[in-house]
Design a protein around this nucleic acid. Sequence first.
DNA 1: CTAGGGTTAG
Length: 605
Amino acid sequence: MRDAWSPLLNYAHLSGLLSRCGRAGDLRLGAALHAVIAKNPVHFRLCPHRASLHHVLVTWNALVAMYSRCGRRDDAARVFDEMPVRDSISWNSLLAAAASSPSDALALLRQMLRSAPAAGACDHATLTTVLSACARDGAASLRACAAVHGLAVSCGLDAGVPVGNALVTGYFECGCPGSAERVFTTMADRNVITWTAMVSGMARAERYQESLALFRQMRREVDANCATYLSSLLACSGSLAAREGQQIHGLVVKAGIDTDLHVESGLMDVYSKCGLMEDALRVFRSCRDPDEVFMTVIVVGFAQNGLGEKAFELFAEMVSSGIHIDANTVSAVLGAFGASAPFALGKQIHTLVIKKCFGGNTYVCNSLINMYSKCGELQESIQVFDGMARKNSISWNCIIASFARHGHGSEVFRLFESMKADGAKPTYVTFLSLLHACSHVGSAKKGLEILNSMSMQYGIQPRVEHYACVVDMLGRAGQLDDAKAFIQDGPFKDSALLWQALMGACSFHKNSEVGRYAAEKLLLLDPDCTATYVLLSNIYSSEGRWEDRARVMKKMREMGLKKDTGKSWIELEKEVRSFVVGPMSRPDSAAVDDAMLLLSEVTGN
DNA sequence: CTAGGGTTAG
């Protein structure tokens, strides 16, 4: 045995082997090496010679790192505790094992600072490891992030590239793009990772224009890599920037990475989100080895562009041809169910979910709740919700929306209380459902109360959609002057959406006085919107003011000759389409039948 | 320390 291992008993060789075990996750070989080392005092015990101190440290550190990388925190900690001597690398190796838990990483950092307060104890590896651990806790770890930032400043490491990059990333993870940006501006040097972290972070923070501006700025300073292009594509898909997406498509071709799998799916994502399904499919067809991500992108594209039946078709083909499908694909296809979806197909997909063991996936369950709700099956939707192991805020939003959709106003408010009691944080969508329910019940007073409570009690800034709900509510109640005042006194008085809502109500109640006022506002805000003219002419005709109506119609015709006609035709076409594809025509669709047939072969029902 | 897809309302 000893002979067999003896060629390995060189400390550099040993630590190299251990590091390879760590990278490969080969715990068995790592533990075997540990056993051998433990028997060899040369590299294991502290000897009086200075040279051996280095050997001992390197060997022990390699052991700690190996256990950390294999995910054996306890073993790493045990080896660490037994160490006769430690340096900052020992601590960093141990920290690596705690990287999945922010509180553990911080506790270790505190311990490290207490035990080794001498300068140089903390290096950039320490700080980046702790920061990436903090990033796992999202918004909750802002304080931790800021504390590490303070430490970095006092160590003089905050402006360096590695720590600066980790701080930028950490602040984005905490939901503080402003702080990330401040670190970015103070950094002395920046590399491609710095820039990519900014482009990606801004895109994830939904600050798409800033993300794309940074991307353009970076191209003058450093070369972009694959990750940078992917991050910029994220910004394009988020902001529906088709033109930018096409430009970046050109850049990735020029960079020779247009055949990269991730880049291809990123491009497809941009195209399909922007409604350019032909372009998305072109990328899809040119891809040599499309996987389930590609399938998901295309399914989502079909679903979001009103081609739900094509989504079902593609999905069913995938299932029957045995192409690998994961939970994401299933969530995506469930999202293709429209207002009046074929219940039987939904049921089959649910069977597939059970068969594939996706029932524990929160996304899938949320989609199922929705699907059943949109099929008109409230009971099924409740059943999925009740059976969920882990509910998030969106799960609650889905079930609340289900009840709201089925007109159970009081249940909506009861569920809202349960949601809070369950510890789920309400989101802006929760309040949209609540306001929707108020509107249904006809309680404008309650609606106003809820709107006020959003910022006061829950710290959620109401968006223009919430205001639109309230305008709608007041409008339905016929309180048109109140609605007008509500818009004017609020933060969204320049939003066309609100004046449109008011104008719709005026048209319903035949109130030309407030209606004309709203129309004037709308014509200033969005002069090319034909819907305004249509509504105004409706108001005039309902009052019998034919001359005024004729004037509006004439104006409309003049506009019709302008080059913006295309837009209104598309809008008109959409209207006509959604009318034709109503509840009655859906079940006859051949595509849905085919999808069900294909699925039934697989799910057996 | 940067890196492809999924769920909510309208």
